[in-house]
Design a protein around this nucleic acid. Structure first.
Lengths: 328, 328
DNA sequence: ACGCGCGTTGCATACGGATGCAAGATCAGG
DNA sequence: CCTGATCTTGCATCCGTATGCAACGCGCGT
């Protein structure tokens, strides 16, 4: 069923049908009403593909992701895709894998003429690939900053969070603190690590250990915690995110360490698991709602369009104190 | 840069350009070579939208999901979207929300002319809505069966799993067992629950409790476990999935119950968390790889096309024995 | 040398809807 | 009743690629 057929049946022109389904188009209310009603009967709905072709607007946003293991990302993606749907945009998912040819994986991003690209992959994509993938279209990075490229981004204030953790450790009397990195070269890690180390020094605390987990995983957190435990001298650990912290917490408890009495533990993100009684993890909450709102607003007002100067939006988070630092 | 412009520059016809990018098209190898090479220089790539319009094939699969909180689904979706990408299909994500108007949320599914629909939402969608959403196109349900509609599906052998758990409980000497449902009306729950109860009776064990958690969540698992504990009389609990089981396990341990000595615990799915030393959860693994393979194969060979009779593919799983039933 | 057949190429048109422009309809004011 | 302004409507064309069909060229067999 096409607009032309429908038009013929009603004895109107195809343009009329098109206008009936175009908000704000120049058409008499009665005609629109008549067409829309008849369309429902014969189950006509405008073909989005044809519309894309003539309007050169797809209403599709490409979402590039690489890590669905860390629950923070599914939660973010879920909210994001819903927010986009609410304003009439669909999400085309690009689940990229380290290793295989990225340009091949992302080639559809260009061929499909997506209106915008949202990149949530903290790692993997190098500057040039980013540039290539987003070339000539609106783009937003979430949770990483562009290094050499000029892209807008929405990112949690990692430094603020890391300082809040450091201050909190200091406030509860800890003086020999450790930091466990996830992937050390990621934006998020660098910002958290640098700010934490700096504030630790400023507060006169000692950085008793600095470990690179090499991945943001539960098991990396476990072995990092055991390393720290083996060398002693630590009374608080800041893990670069909650998944690492969860592993660390479990490993410490299994080793007979009392948390928080012997060692306090903090994470970052505030994934739902952090609130589970078993973990009861102090952490710095990344406000997913706000991140999504800001990103969607940037899309709507075009401030991330290709010509525009890149915008960096820092989102404030919130320290959530829980039992793993003794405040439960 | 369009095919026509490129063609004019090279002094060939637009058809030639089209053929150069169409595998198997009738074109001389040298001409194709020449066009493809030149295209790279001027950064031409075929416009997928236009191609969709003329071929009336989009290479897009709509993926309908509703629950990203249970880690099983992100894991499944990640694998699925990668497998689809590998055969040249992109995934358009439809994250639906209970409550708001589903037909509105899914209207894009029809307007976008997706080649196929894969529905992973265990709940929410009623029969008629399913019918409406998939009308006239290839469709596959994953992890639920169609009730009154004629749709193909790929689903874990839930009954097999539930029986394996019951048998395992019996084998380790448990006789008073409980079952904790997630959403009781879902396909997965009903199949697991019925098979479990039946086998429990066959083995001469007693069903000491049957609780409906009303949702597949950690907290529902906790309160179910506490309920069961309060009424005593139970030495093994089968939770309808791993997230429930995780909550249940934690609640039991916090109450001073020894697992598995006092009460053995089993889940279903084998999400990555189940293997964590802290949970060390006996569970029935749903083989995500196989499920994805089968679904993708069905798409490829067209056995789920609109005209075809519905196919139901039962996927066998595997009992993973761990510490929560004493086998660690 | 002629004719047939196969492999290439271009032409024309289709896919379904959007939109600038002009024509027609409607209405108010004089 | 006439004129001009405003609102509706239809016509024609465009978006960028795919493809059936006809035309062309080349090589081979007789």
């Amino acid at each position: 069923m096409t607009a032309r057929e429908l038009a013929r049946m009603l004895g109107v022109s195809q343009s009329a049908v098109s206008r009936a389904f175009t908000p704000g188009a120049s058409i008499a209310p009665e005609l629109r009403e008549k067409i829309v009603r008849f369309a429902e009967n014969v189950d006509y709905h405008p073909n989005a593909i044809a519309s894309m072709l003539s309007k050169s607007r797809t209403n599709i946003v490409g979402i590039v992701i690489s890590d669905m293991q860390n629950p923070f990302y599914p939660a973010l993606i879920e909210q994001l895709s819903r927010a986009l749907q609410r304003i009439g945009l669909q999400s085309l998912m690009f689940n990229i894998t380290r290793g295989s040819d990225l340009e091949e994986q992302l080639s559809a991003l260009r061929r499909y003429n997506v209106d915008a690209v949202i990149i949530i992959s903290a790692t993997i994509l190098s500057g040039p690939t980013l540039q290539w993938a987003t070339d000539g279209r609106a783009a937003i990075l979430i949770n990483r900053v562009a290094e050499d490229t000029e892209l807008s981004c929405v990112i949690c204030n990692n430094a603020e969070g890391a300082r809040a953790i450091a201050d909190h450790f200091h406030a509860i009397g800890r003086r020999r603190v450790a930091y466990v990195a996830g992937l050390s070269h990621t934006t998020t890690n660098r910002e958290r690590q640098n700010a934490f180390i700096t504030r630790v020094a400023e507060r006169g605390m000692t950085l008793s250990a600095l470990i690179d987990g090499n991945e943001y995983s539960y098991y990396a957190g476990r072995s990092a915690a055991l390393d720290i435990l083996a060398r002693g001298e630590t009374d608080a650990i800041f893990f670069a995110n909650d998944i690492l912290a969860a592993g660390g917490l479990d490993a410490l408890k299994e080793s007979g360490v009392r948390v928080p009495e012997d060692i306090a533990v903090a994470g970052f993100d505030d994934i739902s698991m952090a609130a589970w009684p078993h973990y009861d993890l102090t952490t710095f909450r990344q406000p997913i709602d706000t991140i999504v709102d800001v990103a969607v607003t940037m899309l709507e007002n075009g401030s991330c369009a290709p010509g525009q100067p890149p915008v960096i939006r820092r989102i404030s988070g919130e320290l959530i104190k829980r039992g793993s630092t003794g405040v439960s």
